[in-house]
């Protein structure tokens, strides 16, 4: 079973604050689910490597109308000032 620390580490990587009891239930659920999906370990990877079915789709680099009007997009900002999105200062002074 995944440890409490492993769950908390995943939550930090995923930027998720978890409820207290949730850590325990996730330890159990995530371990069960990983055990089940771990069946894929039996798949022979080498055999399939040479045959990708994806390909790139390219287009000409020409301007085209964008989706959504500026005013409407601005309305969705959590905090707006003079048409700009106000965000938290991320560069702090050294202490």
């Amino acid at each position: 079973m995944l440890s409490r620390e492993e769950i908390l580490n995943l939550a930090a990587l995923a930027r998720l604050k978890l409820g207290g009891a949730e850590v325990e239930s996730l330890q159990k659920d995530i371990s069960n689910i990983l055990e089940y999906v771990g069946q894929v370990s039996q798949v022979d990877v080498e055999k399939e490597k040479a045959t990708p079915f994806n390909y790139n789709v390219m287009r000409e680099d020409v301007p085209a109308p964008t989706l959504g009007k500026r005013e409407e997009l601005i309305k969705a900002f959590p905090k707006e000032e003079n048409g700009y999105n106000v965000v938290r200062k991320i560069i702090q002074k050294d202490e």
Binding site: L10, L26, S41, P52
Partner: peptide
């Protein structure tokens, strides 16, 4: 939340090949 946690796990360094790599091969 559960799926975000699981996705973060299967994509993390050290587990990527065992899960996502294998799953992609199974898909092909």
């Amino acid at each position: 939340r559960r799926r975000i946690m699981l996705g973060t796990y299967v994509l993390s360094a050290g587990y990527y090949d065992a899960y996502y790599g294998k799953a992609t091969a199974a898909r092909v």
